[in-house]
């Protein structure tokens, strides 16, 4: 049985409509008008133990709603979800004991207390045995490089350090599943890499299952073999990153640096999409013309100093999928 099983999850909200005008607030108080927003229109997927799965989608697409339901904060209107054999919203306290959650936007640590005090409080809250706690603590401190910050109040930490502490805090009770909501938001490049490495290593060595939401495609490319793309309340894609690329056109870009002074840069089988001085960008479809064939044609057509072949950047692909979504 999969660790997380989600079947036809549905959820809609009634959002209040606000009246404008000087007496709008009063009118709303007397006569409340609402419209129904379907946040999830029946979503189904499984996640096996030890997988790292990325959940992407435009803002308001329903991915936070899905995570909230699976984490046990919210109950759905219809459908089923089983996490580690439990229904999250029916048995919240037993459920949350076995999961860890990190929100990129807010900390779960005690703002004015030293980091180590927060960790000790979480040990009490989760009822972790002393020996297990000591062992896990030593591991997170070494792996996430936290030795120097344990005695600092959380409010004095940089965002990157704070996120590593938050991640450590979410792992102290040895959850089987970790939910990360935009974990790298606002982090600098070095902190992002450190955080991703921490997540990847921990998952690999302890068999931790990770479900993360993000808008940073590097998070996905670095961490996730599998992507769930949610848009407009539906699961548009459940597959690998390459499947995501294939969803949009499979076109690639051939970038060529020419020797000076070539006027005509047309090439059969490719479309010139951009030119800056001696640098050309040619788009082509590898199904129509093989890459080596195209390169051979280019080499015989004009003098080339250098060339590279690139997939379309994943951001562009995702943006196009969002735009094409119904």
């Amino acid at each position: 049985m999969a660790q997380i099983e989600v079947r036809g999850l549905r959820k809609s909200f009634r959002a209040p409509l606000r009246s404008s005008g000087p007496f709008g607030a009063l009118r709303d108080l007397l006569h409340r008008r609402t419209r129904t927003v379907e946040a999830l229109k029946g979503i189904t997927f499984d996640i096996e133990a030890g997988q790292i799965v990325g959940c992407i989608g435009p803002n308001g697409a329903g991915k936070s709603t899905a995570i909230k339901i699976i984490a046990g904060i919210m109950n759905p209107d219809g459908g089923e979800a089983t996490v580690l054999g439990r229904t999250p919203w029916a048995d919240r306290i037993a459920h949350v004991r076995h999961i860890g959650v990190v929100f990129g936007q807010r900390t779960q640590l005690w703002w004015d207390l030293p980091v180590i005090d927060s960790f000790a409080l979480l040990r009490e809250i989760y009822g972790v045995a002393r020996r297990d706690y000591d062992e896990t603590l030593a591991d997170v401190v070494e792996r996430f490089h936290l030795a120097e910050v344990l005695d600092s109040p959380v409010r004095q930490l940089s965002l990157g350090l704070r996120m590593r502490c938050d991640l450590a805090a979410a792992l102290l009770h040895r959850p089987s599943i970790l939910f990360l909501d935009e974990p790298t938001i606002g982090l600098d490049a070095v902190s992002k890499l450190a955080l991703r490495e921490a997540i990847r290593d921990w998952s690999a060595e302890r068999g931790l299952t990770v479900l993360l939401t993000t808008h940073d495609m590097d998070d996905i490319e670095d961490l996730c073999r599998r992507v769930l793309l949610i848009a407009d309340g539906s699961l548009l894609l459940d597959g690998a990153i390459d499947d995501l690329r294939r969803m949009s056109s499979a076109r690639r870009t051939l970038m060529i640096d020419l020797a000076a002074g070539v006027a005509n840069a047309e090439l059969e089988g490719a479309e010139l999409v951009r030119r800056e001085g001696d640098r050309l960008w040619l788009e082509y479809d590898p199904e129509q013309v093989a890459t080596h064939e195209l390169i051979a044609r280019a080499a015989s057509a004009f003098p080339i100093r250098d060339l590279t072949v690139a997939d379309r950047p994943i951001e562009e692909v995702v943006a196009q999928v969002y735009r094409d979504a119904p």
């Binding site: 909230k68 984490a71 904060i73 959650v101 807010r106 809250i125």
Partner: peptide, 10 residues
């Protein structure tokens, strides 16, 4: 922030 309380086993 109330969500955070719901994520703790108490």
């Amino acid at each position: 922030d109330f969500d955070r309380l719901l994520l703790r086993p108490l």
